[in-house]
């Protein structure tokens, strides 16, 4: 952004909802009850986004580049072993707690203000952009991300790619070299293609719901992931957010306990664009 324009529009830029008039705001809803933790989304992300396979040693050293990871926990948030039970059990009798964790595309992203070269910034359609060719690799954003979903290219991973594996690389986006931070983009190349497509069809301001699917959503065997435009009142993701009473622009939701929607680390006021829905267990059995 031009310095002059930034100074001129300072008060507008400082508004809480900076992009309120934009027609898009990409968001996601993930149903943790449907999520089985199978990992199809993770592999799909590797395939779609040219993520490098780092190998055993580098994985062990913490250089893995999975934009999406499936975390699982054995306990409830309050450390009780299972819902409605306080005493420890020999076994995780209610199964595991899976949660796919990727960039939450925070609307008040802590990573954005700290980048010295503005390589990460908020796009008008509500994405937390990471511009690879602008990144200088100060890694401040990675520290400041509470979800720890930013991945740094500590090596030139793609140089290890043996022939003919490089033929698989997706030509729609770049292959990152060493010294660059990267993260989940909500498949920005697909969003871009979808918008172009809408423009071809002659309705540039409205991408039809379901036209743009992220790679993880596309492959999810149980369709636990729903992606779409939160500003489109008829979109599935908007309906899910509304049904689960999760609203934007707040760090605490005013909703009944038994309504399942929530956003992770909402209390930090980072405004994630990803809503999760509680996992469910039948307590009678």
């Amino acid at each position: 952004m031009g310095l002059r324009r930034m100074l001129e529009n300072w008060s507008d830029l400082r508004k809480r909802d900076y992009y309120e008039n934009e027609p898009y705001m990409w968001g996601m809803a993930i149903d943790l009850d449907k999520c089985t933790g199978c990992g199809a989304c993770v592999t799909a992300c590797y395939v779609e986004n040219n993520l490098p396979v780092v190998g055993k040693e580098k994985f062990a050293s913490g250089y893995a580049m999975h934009w999406m990871r499936i975390e699982h926990y054995w306990t409830e948030p309050d450390d009780s072993p299972e819902i409605g039970q306080k005493e420890p059990s020999d076994h995780p009798e209610r199964g595991a707690h899976f949660i796919p964790m990727m960039c939450q595309q925070c609307n008040h992203a802590p990573c954005e203000p700290v980048c010295p070269v503005a390589a990460t910034y908020h796009t008008p359609d509500g994405l937390n952009a990471q511009v690879y060719n602008r990144c200088v690799g100060s890694r401040y954003c990675g520290n400041n991300c509470p979800f720890k979903v930013r991945y740094f290219n500590f090596f030139d991973f793609w140089k290890d790619l043996p022939e003919p594996l490089e033929q698989q690389l997706n030509p729609d986006l770049s292959v990152r070299s060493k010294g660059i931070m990267e993260k989940c983009t909500f498949c920005v190349q697909r969003i871009r293609a979808g918008k172009d497509h809408a423009e071809d069809e002659g309705h540039p301001h409205s991408v039809e719901d379901g036209t743009i699917v992220t790679a993880c959503q596309q492959t999810c065997p149980t369709q636990a992931i729903v992606f779409g435009n939160l500003k489109d009142k008829s979109s599935r993701v908007h309906q899910l957010w509304a049904d689960h009473q999760v609203k934007l622009n707040r760090h605490e939701q005013d909703k009944p306990e038994d309504v399942r929607g929530y956003r992770v680390f909402e209390e930090l006021n980072v405004e994630p664009s990803v809503m999760y829905m509680d996992r469910v267990r039948d307590t009678e059995i």
Partner: peptide, 9 residues
């Protein structure tokens, strides 16, 4: 393009 003046760096 300018650097990000908000960044402490």
């Amino acid at each position: 393009i300018w650097p990000n003046f908000r960044s402490p760096l």
